[in-house]
Simulated assay, not measured.
Amino acid sequence: LPAEPKIFHGRDSELAEILELFSQGTPRIAILGAGGMGKTSLARTALHHTELTTKYQGNRFFIACDTASNKVELAGLIGAHLGMKPGKDMTQAVLLYFSDASPSLLILDNLETVWEPVESRKEIEEILSLLTDITNLALVITMRGAERPAKVQWTRPFLLPLQPLAQDAARKMFIDIADEGYSMEEMDQVLHLADNMPLSISLLAHLVDMEGCSEILSRWETERTSLISDGYDRKSNLELSISLSVSSPRMTSHSQDLLALLSMLPDGLSDVELKQSKFPIKDILGCKAALLRTALAYTDDLKRLKVLVPVREYMRTLSPPKDQMIRPLLTYFQELLELCVKFSGMESGTLLIARITSNYTNIQNVLRYGLQG
């Protein structure tokens, strides 16, 4: 089994929810969220929690699904962890093992790797369905995105997709990694760049520990996300982690265009703005749904579609928005400003001011782009 995470902050409520589901029986739980949000850490912490070690003892299995590309390979991975001899298709053997075993816990980590491709999705959902037919087998999966596989009766209440850490938890995580020698203000500046994503915090904090806060803040100005993308896997390379989501089969070219556009809009966009701006994006609300399903974007309390800072910086650097995407937005904001002047002092003018205020940073960025163009 993988070790229990030594640094774990800000997920107490999610852990409590998971343990509550286990206390009610044999659950089927999906831990969802964007890449780098700490899904694996949460699963590993639950795996080693006293309540679950007592309940399942030696019948706890943690399978990293990164290397599987179809049902047969996934069954083979599970079989290997169960100590079975390799076979052509281990599916039935795995099902028989768990059916005859004492109560067991199976965690399938990074299941999206094998589930996302359209050609393998149906068979993966079928094996998940068969696994959950086994009454004494608890199943936990971790998947990037906000979409649960079909054909499984997931235990309610569903665990919400993981969000960035609260500021206090983010600070604790940073302090656990980076040595002293920085001010609270400098630490918060670094955390702002990470947008409190656990993976980004971890990578940046390790750099701060080696080079100092001021040096890292200075390097970020020129290197952006490449600063924390020297690793060889999704857990040590931010750009690789983000690219796995961007290249997801759930993402169309139009969805990628929308993501690129949002990368220069820190204030995000409302549904009304998505439709009124007349972007050359086919089925723009469908593209919005794709961004939400892959957890590359989120909606804030005002229902505005936004992208976290690390994803914005990645897209702006490696896949910036095309000119034909920005021009309609430039026109839209110009018309909005003109209408605001025209109806100044009237009730409709007040509403227009509210719309402008909610796009303040967006307008600055778009106008700056227009001047540069």
Rank of each mutant, 00 (worst) to 15 (best):
P5T: 08
K6P: 00
D12G: 10
S13K: 14
E17K: 13
T26Q: 10
G33W: 03
A34N: 00
T40P: 05
A46S: 13
A46Q: 09
H48W: 15
H49P: 01
E51F: 08
L52S: 05
K55R: 15
R60T: 07
I63L: 01
V72S: 08
G83W: 12
P86V: 01
M90Q: 15
Q92M: 12
L96Y: 06
P103R: 05
S104H: 11
L108E: 01
E112S: 06
V114I: 14
L130E: 14
L131G: 05
D133F: 03
I134W: 11
T135A: 07
N136P: 02
R144W: 08
E147L: 15
W154S: 02
T155R: 04
F158C: 00
L160Y: 11
L162T: 09
D168R: 06
I175F: 05
D176M: 04
E180C: 06
D188M: 08
L191I: 05
L193E: 02
S200T: 10
L207Y: 10
D209A: 14
E211I: 07
L217F: 11
T225D: 01
S226E: 15
I228P: 02
I228W: 01
Y232S: 13
L238G: 03
E239T: 10
S245K: 01
S245C: 10
S248D: 07
R250V: 08
L261Y: 04
G268F: 12
D271N: 15
V272S: 14
K275W: 00
I284V: 15
T294D: 05
T294R: 11
Y298E: 10
T299N: 08
D300S: 00
K303S: 14
L305P: 12
L308R: 02
M315S: 07
R316K: 15
T317N: 04
L318M: 10
S319E: 12
P321Y: 10
K322M: 10
Q324R: 05
R327C: 00
P328F: 06
Y332L: 03
F333T: 04
L336F: 03
C340N: 13
V341C: 03
S344Y: 14
M346K: 12
E347D: 13
T350I: 14
T350F: 11
L351E: 13
L352A: 04
I353Y: 10
N359E: 07
N362D: 11
Q364W: 11
Q364F: 13
R368Y: 06
Y369N: 04
